[in-house]
Amino acid sequence: MTKLEFEKPILELEGKIAELRNMGSHDSINIAEEISRMQSKAEKLLIQTYSKLTPQQKVQVARHQDRPHFVDYVRELIQDFTPLAGDRLYAEDFAMPGGLGRFRGISCVVLGQEKGSDTDSRIRHNFGMARPEGYRKAQRLMHMAQQFRLPVITLVDTAGAYPGVGAEERGQAEAIARSIEACLRIHVPIISTVIGEGGSGGAIAIATADLVYMLEHSIYSVISPEGCASILWRSAAHANDAAAALKLTAQDMLELKLIDGIIPEPIGGAHRKKQETIRNVGDRIEKALQRLMPWDDETLLRQRNQKFLSMGAAA
């Protein structure tokens, strides 16, 4: 498990509590008191810390390896998930899993980025960085959703599209652009949730949706704070400043009216209580579906296009 620097005081306390528990039997009353005292202290500290995370700390939480990932959400929320592979042009992209499934009774198409959870799976999923095949598969699945008149649920969790020679050769830019275009053109509802990192073009490629939500401690940005710092400050050491300047937190994004809502995370972040987080996301998606269904094709399409046409528009 990765340890976040700012969580250290909390983790230390939790460690001590665990230690006390282990040697518990001798003087049980005093120790039990001490444990509950320390527990409430730890909890307070956790609430305090997480109520005022800095943007850079949010970046760390959003990237936390123990956060629930795409596969966790699908396991908990989607029945009869039937993964579908390949872009029918070149390859299957394991960074962009997707398929048919049933969400709380409703058939749908689910797709998103998967970062992997250990060394092997991270390599297999290319750390959640899709290549053109991933974005072309996304287009394929979206068109399929339209064909079958199924709503699309996307889960966004990527540092960005993969920067590689092959990816460029096979038209990374075009694949992303067409994926955004597919999002704008299909006349079935699309609901997107940023569950961790919403990294630039790689994220917007599948997040041009009717309703876009972000988890409380997720981020959404045009460039990574490190990349931004190395360009504008000429040093990646200024990632802190860049994270703050970019206004990449869910709270900033809502204030800028670029997303439709924030999904609360359990105290101490999604990585502490996966089940609860996943349930919160599921509940919000359910509400969103209720809001959008049934739909009128033309109205849905017009509203979605209008929404994105007005982003950043003159008042």
């Binding site: 073009g201 917007i204 959404y220």
Partner: peptide, 22 residues
Amino acid sequence: GARMQEGAISLMQMPRTIAAVD
């Protein structure tokens, strides 16, 4: 590419311009 100084607003110009040329 995107203008970093406008954060995610610049990112949203991607779907915006695509909707426009469509």
